[in-house]
Amino acid sequence: MRIASLFTGIGGLELGLARAGHRAVLACEIWSPARAVLAARLPDAHLHADVTTLADLPGDTELLTAGFPCQDLSQAGRTLGIGGTRSGLVGHVFRLLDERAIPVVVLENVSFMLSLDRGAAMHRLAGAFEERGYRWAYRTIDAQAFLPQRRARVFLVATRSDLDPADVLFQGDVAMPPSSTTLASHAHGFYWTEGTRGLGWAPDAVPTLKNGSTVGIPSPPAILRTDGVIVKPDLRDAERLQGFPADWTRPAEEVARASLRWALVGNAVSVPVAEWLGERLRDPRPHETERDGPWPTGRGSWPRAARFDGTTRHAVRIGAYPVFLEREPLERFLEHPGTPLSARGTAGFLSRAEASSLRFAPGFLDAVRRHLAARRGERDAALAA
């Protein structure tokens, strides 16, 4: 299908769809570092800067994609809701659909929007599609099904064609294989900037890559390696943890500081999830209606998966892993050594962790203390020299 893409970012959704045979003809993105990446990586797509000035979509558009801004919907963001200045831009999706009814629409956003403001974002999105005669289905999918990054996102497919969105999204449902990791056998990811209320602990994986700061302050996770060293992953490995080729975002440095590449990566759609979706769009399979359940009443949040068949809304019993691909351990996946977490960063994390009531894996805090002692020793030796 020919794709018109809104809020394109660095093209993760479009790259994945392209690997499944689809093609972007329009990419709309306002942030200049991301547009620099798109100009280099999606050279055949027409670039438009501002969705608010986009009057219409190309006449041959068959698929509209929109990974609309999540800042107002995310737990890590401002949680202003769907009416916030950034996330409210999704309204332009429906303005453009009113100009041209595109047969298939794909939206992507954070899973927190299912519960924020008692599901207000989903009420608005679902209602807007239903008013325009679309059937819809959505599913929470975790990128860890494909890569060693824990990243749950909602993918919504809406259609005004013979294609049933349930036949696209509800294929495959597997359990995550049981894990027997230890600090000695596998690397473990966590948020070194946390430690008071949460940790983001991820055995043999990293927690969700974040977008960092709009002023270019990176926010990579930490990885405790089996040798006891705590590192922040190299940016090239962060790109790979999203499914991009290494250095995919390098063109951004032509217009912005290099540190902003972390925000570009953290905001992106994971490529292999998009590829899986693209393959399902090409090869839909009948939805197993026995997965359907009654629509929940008296609760604020929406189900983790659901569908609207044109008449009735159904909750759908299906998990976040359509597959669980075999992969090499995280420590071998990483192609670059990363940067050891500094003494200052380690000390700050340790002080928060020790003062918290969080429970930690056996030996974890001791490993952090040993890393801190090693970093302080290196610092003192450098000062003495």
Rank of each mutant, 00 (worst) to 15 (best):
L114P: 04
R86K: 14
V90I: 06
A374K: 10
L260Y: 13
R370K: 04
L125W: 15
D237L: 08
S356K: 01
V168A: 02
T249C: 15
A27K: 01
L96M: 07
H371C: 03
P221L: 08
G59E: 15
L334N: 05
G127E: 04
G83Y: 11
L73N: 03
G212Q: 07
V90Q: 02
D167V: 04
A205I: 02
G300W: 10
R376G: 09
L47V: 09
G59F: 14
T312E: 14
Q171W: 00
L334P: 01
A34F: 05
L38V: 08
V174G: 04
A128N: 15
T312I: 09
W192G: 06
E130H: 11
L156P: 01
S301C: 01
G278I: 00
L114E: 03
R86I: 08
A274K: 07
R327G: 08
A305N: 04
Q144T: 10
R19D: 12
E131T: 09
R332D: 08
R376Q: 14
L209S: 09
W248L: 03
A202V: 01
V271C: 03
G81M: 09
L341C: 12
A126K: 12
L163D: 06
Q71I: 03
L116E: 08
P33S: 06
E194Q: 14
H123W: 02
E131G: 11
S259Q: 05
F94P: 12
L325T: 10
A347W: 15
V154M: 11
A343L: 08
G228E: 08
V271T: 04
S270C: 15
Q242E: 06
M122F: 14
F68A: 13
V37Q: 04
A320D: 13
L156K: 13
A184E: 14
L13H: 09
L125H: 14
P286C: 02
N109C: 05
A353F: 02
R375G: 10
P103A: 05
G127V: 05
T61A: 12
G127P: 05
R240C: 04
G278L: 05
A143I: 02
L73C: 03
L330C: 02
R23A: 14
P69C: 10
S179A: 15
R124F: 15
H188C: 10
A66R: 10
V168Y: 13
I82E: 04
S301I: 00
S270E: 08
G298P: 07
P58F: 05
R197W: 01
L54W: 10
G77M: 05
R150K: 02
L383F: 15
G84P: 02
P303L: 09
L281R: 13
L107W: 12
G195D: 03
L281E: 07
V265D: 04
E239S: 08
L330E: 00
D227Q: 11
A222K: 07
D60A: 15
Q75D: 13
V51S: 09
G119F: 12
M122Y: 12
S213F: 05
F190S: 03
L26M: 07
V229M: 02
E326C: 09
W31F: 09
S32Y: 11
D292H: 15
G345M: 01
L235K: 01
G300Y: 06
S115K: 11
E194G: 14
L183E: 09
V93R: 03
V93K: 07
A101S: 13
S356Y: 01
V273L: 06
R160W: 04
L125F: 00
A158F: 04
R352E: 02
V271S: 05
V206N: 06
Y134V: 13
V316E: 08
S213E: 13
V157F: 01
A361P: 06
Y134R: 12
